[in-house]
Design a protein around this nucleic acid. Sequence first.
DNA 1: CGCAAATTTGACGTTAGTCAAGGTTGGTGG
DNA 2: CCACCAACCTTGACTAACGTCAAATTTGCG
Lengths: 261, 261
Amino acid sequence: MNGLNQFAIKQTGDAEEACPDSQEVACAQCKLHGFLKFFEGSDLLSLNIFLSRRIPVAKGAILFDAVAPFRGIYAVKSGSFKSFSHQDPSGDQILGFSLPGELIGLDALHSSQYGYSTVALEASSVCWLPFEHLDVLGERMAFFQEQVIRILVDQVRHDHHQTLLVGRRTAEERLGAFLLNLSDRYRRHGFEGEAFRLPMLQNDMANYLGLSMETVSRTLRGFREQEVVSIQGKRLRILNEDCLRSIAHACRGGGDSAGPG
Amino acid sequence: MNGLNQFAIKQTGDAEEACPDSQEVACAQCKLHGFLKFFEGSDLLSLNIFLSRRIPVAKGAILFDAVAPFRGIYAVKSGSFKSFSHQDPSGDQILGFSLPGELIGLDALHSSQYGYSTVALEASSVCWLPFEHLDVLGERMAFFQEQVIRILVDQVRHDHHQTLLVGRRTAEERLGAFLLNLSDRYRRHGFEGEAFRLPMLQNDMANYLGLSMETVSRTLRGFREQEVVSIQGKRLRILNEDCLRSIAHACRGGGDSAGPG
DNA sequence: CGCAAATTTGACGTTAGTCAAGGTTGGTGG
DNA sequence: CCACCAACCTTGACTAACGTCAAATTTGCG
């Protein structure tokens, strides 16, 4: 899986790519970046044809629903999203949250439909890479696929972590690991890891972690009382990361990436 | 060398009769098959060079451990395996079980090490596709990668189900879904779905499902008393699939997952 | 400022984990 | 073929964790 020739990576200080708004992820920090470099260097035109940049999505708006035909993948530019399946008579099940710099929809590849729905948790924006155009890329397909594989492998590993996380752990461990996971993901995409927004409802966290809303509330209170974190509205600050880490797992390495895709 | 019914214990039938002990999967039913067809037609020699067929693995033998360098993927030909990570101070965590026809190690692609260990649950055999040879395949790479992607996407979807399965469900739901999942997987690879072996220990099931061993035991007893299944030794027969299905998805659709890879 | 949504808090019940002991099974060697 | 032993599984009693229900309080948006 190597020895494939590299296209020149254009390192620009494009105004477009700079981050005027600190809530946006820089293009260079986005997971989509790995895909884009294959467009650059030889045919910039195709990049602009294929990639739609910075599409606004209003809070509560549906990016796609479960039965929408697969139209390609999205990268979160700013804001955040939750993805959920609603095949459940007793209510929706949240599959994951997507933060700036992360991809949505990759796991619907080769499917006719996404299979889950994705909604903006706040005013957000995305970049869109429509896949039906990609087969015209011919020779670059292999490079492209290598990227896809790399990210899917990441995803599988993350999901294993998630499975470990949700199975048989106490509320404190789940929530602690969840907060550390968010912290890592923000940091990885160029944001501050110690202080960040919790864009989702406690209800959503509860759903995602397999807990009740009340338990989430009580557990967060516990964290506050132990002065492990401080919370003001939707803003969270990690005051004692070591402690949080030891609560989260008697010792496991921080979780990896994202929601679906 | 297969299916010798060495356990020809002729009891009052039930779970034993239609459930031969250890069978090989037919090549055409194996997930590796999709990969292999790209070798065919032009150069059958390379197939034999690259693919090692039917390597025996003794019960309890380690197929690879977590820090072994990535050497390619395996397909279970006969028998079964469990994969587990042991980064957890509180003990190993089982990531999944692999049945005949399923792949192991695919999610270590592009990694230097497997990252988890895999052990044979019984006398088994595998086919081995060493990946370091694959980059000589040139043009076929794209097709190959497409297969990889297809399976990884599958995997991600299953893992989502698994996460849903383990989070916030009762012991009955988890175990019911687990049994149905095994049934589906056996059936998919050409075996009988109503009667099959449970190759793993109850302890392993418990670990995998995030339950205690005692709860698994009690829950299985419940299933037996409700005449939903019959169990004799390691053989299981589903007596009332509808009932099992309604136990399993007390609220949700969907089964659960395949093993890693 | 007001209302609806979100969160917090308390009381109580249920599920499944833990501890401990007893029973079964299957593999091995005599 | 049988006896034995070490895993493995089963069962019971007890308990901690967490879900549920209900009501009070806070938040935040228009």
